[in-house]
């Protein structure tokens, strides 16, 4: 390639390049950047959507610091994320390893993804019915084998765990599929070498699979943790935050403040805080787990 050709390239390709990214950039500007900036501005106002925003400075953030329901929502949300991500990640890695090491059947691998193909709300309502205290099939079975029935959604001690469990059930196959894709990137020669050296399945998993899977696992964690923090629909169509405030997660509280109570400024302020928390969590995960490096090289 000559120097002249290199020098000429930008002039020729800048316009087409801009044209290519224009559709995506337009979408980004209209649907992400502008709403985000406007949301940040609204968080400094009192705004009920029907009137005009009134600038109030940091008042919404001061109110938030004193709002017990907000802090409770933060606690509930963190509890949900820990339970959901804990169950989901462990089970997904286990499932992915089974898919990788045990079966080559596309049918079995595909069927694991089935729950993910059902809409969130449908999954939530389905489990809401099946886990109902009085007329749900799960409690009918529990009752039949002589154990005390459980108010899965109604009992404060159970409700967050139940919601976390329902969402784990739905997202497990999808998460396992992502992990499985990561497993396939690990060269077979490493496993052959391990087998030659006499390593068993257990040892192979801890010494080879998990370390080499780390970059993919970090990506999966960033995606699923961010998704878990945004839990809304499952709660909205089942407990609606109850009993009391036991399942009032942050997103539900934000929605309620904005759309049910007309406090769009306050809701925007909470969204800004959630945004910062999520950005921080993603950044910490990337850093702590060294996502940019692979142990393969």
């Amino acid at each position: 390639m000559t120097t002249a050709a290199v020098a000429r390239r930008p002039r020729n390709q800048l316009l087409p390049a801009l044209g290519m990214i224009a559709p995506a950039a337009l979408g980004f500007l209209v649907f992400y950047l502008y709403p985000t900036l406007r949301g940040a501005y609204l968080s400094l106002t009192e705004y009920n959507v029907l009137g005009s925003p009134v600038f109030v400075g940091l008042q919404n953030y001061v109110d938030m610091a004193k709002d017990d329901v907000f802090w409770n929502a933060v606690r509930v949300t963190f509890l949900y994320v820990v339970l959901n991500i804990g169950f989901q990640t462990v089970l997904a890695v286990g499932l992915a390893v089974l898919m990788h090491r045990l079966t080559k059947s596309v049918l079995i691998r595909g069927s694991l993804l089935l729950p993910y193909l059902i809409a969130n709300v449908v999954v939530a309502l389905l489990w809401f019915w099946m886990l109902d205290f009085n007329i749900g099939i799960v409690n009918a079975v529990i009752d039949a084998i002589g154990l005390p029935k459980v108010a899965f959604f109604g009992d404060e001690a159970w409700t967050v765990a139940t919601i976390a469990g329902v969402n784990t059930w739905r997202h497990l196959g999808y998460t396992a599929l992502l992990v499985f894709a990561g497993l396939q990137m690990i060269p077979a020669s490493v496993y052959e070498a391990a087998a030659v050296d006499g390593a068993g399945e257990w040892r192979t998993f801890w010494r080879i699979t998990l370390p080499l899977l780390r970059p993919v696992l970090v990506l999966v964690l960033v995606i699923t943790v961010t998704g878990a923090f945004q839990v809304f629909d499952t709660v909205a169509v089942t407990t609606a935050g109850g009993p009391g405030n036991a399942s009032r997660v942050l997103q539900l509280y934000i929605y309620e403040q904005a759309f049910a109570r007309g406090h769009f400024g306050y809701a925007s302020a909470m969204s800004v805080v959630l945004f910062l928390v999520l950005a921080g969590a993603a950044f910490a995960q990337m850093r702590l787990l060294r996502a940019g490096e692979s142990d393969l090289s």
Partner: peptide, 14 residues
């Protein structure tokens, strides 16, 4: 019924 058992199927369905 205890309150926690009313979260689920509607009172009329029960």
């Amino acid at each position: 019924p205890p309150l926690e058992t009313t979260i689920g199927a509607s009172v009329n369905d029960n």
